[in-house]
């Protein structure tokens, strides 16, 4: 039981950080990003390049990685997203998919398909809770996600600029009216969101140990699901979503086994995602039916099933 909880929390923290980046970008620009996984991966490759090839200390490499991630996010916003203000959300989604593929291709191009190894500085620090190896990085990820999830929203509320970030996607005109330049808001959320992805990738790397192209995107997809489960606009929701998916995964592999194949975690995530989304979609109808059980003709209750 404790094992399941600890494992779930450690993974959930990472998902939550990715989810926070997604939510931040969505609230700030109304764009659902599919690119942040690859932004995280390429940042990690950059850290590898700085540490293993150039010979810089790990901390500098990590800072460089986060800086590169933020730079990529900002550049993408500046060059492309900005031109898509009036486009429909789905084509913007495809745009971010294209950027993710571009970065994936760049990973293959510069580093090849064979996995690389970035030695973390604290390989030998860890403690064990109920047979689970816990590394300080994982705890840091969880704490960071918790702080960002619950602290960021109230912190943002304190300034006009922060309020602008929270309101930008919903009402861009209002943001401009209170004197906050919208372009700075969007640039900031994309940079910060991308930086978070780089950070999440760095924090998870020590527990996996190798970097391969597309490495962070699998984690990111679950983070994306976590953001959607958490409501897509709520920062605390992103944290909760991440932790819920993390625990659901560890619980499923503990209690359900794997049926002889790996990857059951994706089924679990997909199921939770569908239950939450469809539950939300059908909620108003269900509520209405409960409120007025005899609406319309007597057969109304069955008519809904056909719709």
């Amino acid at each position: 039981m404790l094992q399941v909880l600890v494992l779930g929390l450690m993974n959930g923290g990472i998902y939550a950080i990715f989810a926070l980046g997604v939510v931040l970008v969505y609230r700030g620009t109304g764009v659902l990003t599919f690119a942040h996984g690859e932004i995280g991966t390429i940042a990690l490759y950059f850290a590898y390049f700085l540490v293993a090839k150039v010979g810089l200390p790990w901390s500098i490499g990590a800072l460089g990685a986060i800086a590169l991630a933020a730079l990529l996010g900002g550049a993408f916003e500046f060059l492309f997203v900005r031109r898509m203000v009036n486009a429909d959300p789905v084509s913007t989604v495809v745009l971010t998919v294209g950027f993710g593929l571009f970065l994936l291709a760049a990973e293959f191009f510069f580093f090849g398909a064979s996995p690389r190894n970035l030695e973390p500085p604290t390989k030998h620090y860890f403690f064990v809770i109920d047979n689970v190896v816990v590394r300080p990085w994982q705890v840091a990820a969880l704490v960071l996600a918790l702080v960002l999830g619950f602290g960021l929203q109230s912190a943002l509320r304190r300034s006009d600029f922060g309020l602008g970030i929270l309101a930008a996607a919903q009402d861009p005109a209002a943001v401009r009216l209170v004197g906050v330049p919208l372009s700075r808001v969007t640039l900031t959320v994309w940079s910060v969101g991308a930086g978070l992805s780089g950070l999440a990738a760095l924090l998870v790397e020590p527990s996996v140990g190798v970097i391969a192209p597309g490495y962070a995107s699998e984690l990111f997809v679950i983070g994306l699901a976590a953001a959607v489960v958490g409501g897509l606009t709520s920062l605390p929701g992103a944290f909760v979503g991440g932790v819920v998916l993390g625990i659901a995964q560890s619980a499923s592999s503990r209690y359900l086994g794997s049926f002889g194949v790996s990857g059951l975690q994706y089924i679990v995530v997909l199921t939770i995602l569908l239950v939450v989304l469809l539950g939300r979609a059908y909620a108003p109808e269900v509520r209405r039916r409960l409120a007025t059980p005899h609406a319309g003709a007597p057969s109304t209750t069955t008519a809904g099933a056909a719709a």
Binding site: L101, A105, F108, F109, F110, G112, A113
Partner: peptide, 8 residues
């Protein structure tokens, strides 16, 4: 590495 990389 990767003609494929460039193409993509």
């Amino acid at each position: 590495h990767g003609i494929d990389g460039i193409a993509l």
